[in-house]
Deep mutational scan, measured.
Amino acid sequence: PEDEKKAKEALKRANGDEDKAKEILRKLGVDPDRAEELLRRLR
Rank of each mutant, 00 (worst) to 15 (best):
P1Q: 14
E2G: 11
D3L: 14
D3Y: 08
D3V: 07
D3M: 11
D3S: 05
E4Q: 08
E4G: 05
E4S: 07
K5I: 14
K5Y: 12
K6G: 05
K6E: 07
A7K: 01
K8R: 15
K8A: 12
K8F: 12
K8M: 13
E9K: 08
E9Y: 14
E9W: 15
E9T: 07
A10H: 01
A10D: 01
L11Y: 06
K12P: 00
K12I: 13
K12N: 09
R13T: 12
R13Y: 11
N15H: 12
N15L: 09
G16L: 03
G16E: 02
G16P: 01
D17M: 04
D17K: 04
E18Y: 15
E18M: 15
D19W: 10
D19M: 13
K20V: 14
K20I: 14
K22A: 09
K22F: 12
E23D: 10
E23P: 00
L25S: 00
L25A: 01
L25F: 01
L25Y: 01
R26I: 15
R26C: 07
K27G: 13
K27P: 01
K27L: 15
K27S: 14
K27R: 13
L28N: 06
L28Q: 13
L28E: 10
G29K: 03
V30H: 03
V30W: 15
D31S: 13
D31T: 10
D31M: 09
P32H: 08
R34P: 01
R34A: 10
R34Q: 09
A35F: 07
A35C: 04
A35K: 00
A35M: 06
E36R: 06
E36V: 08
E37V: 07
E37F: 06
E37S: 06
L38G: 00
L39D: 00
L39I: 14
L39E: 00
R40M: 10
R40P: 01
R41A: 14
R41T: 09
R41H: 11
L42G: 03
L42I: 12
L42P: 02
L42C: 05
R43L: 14
R43H: 07
R43N: 08
R43D: 05
R43Q: 10
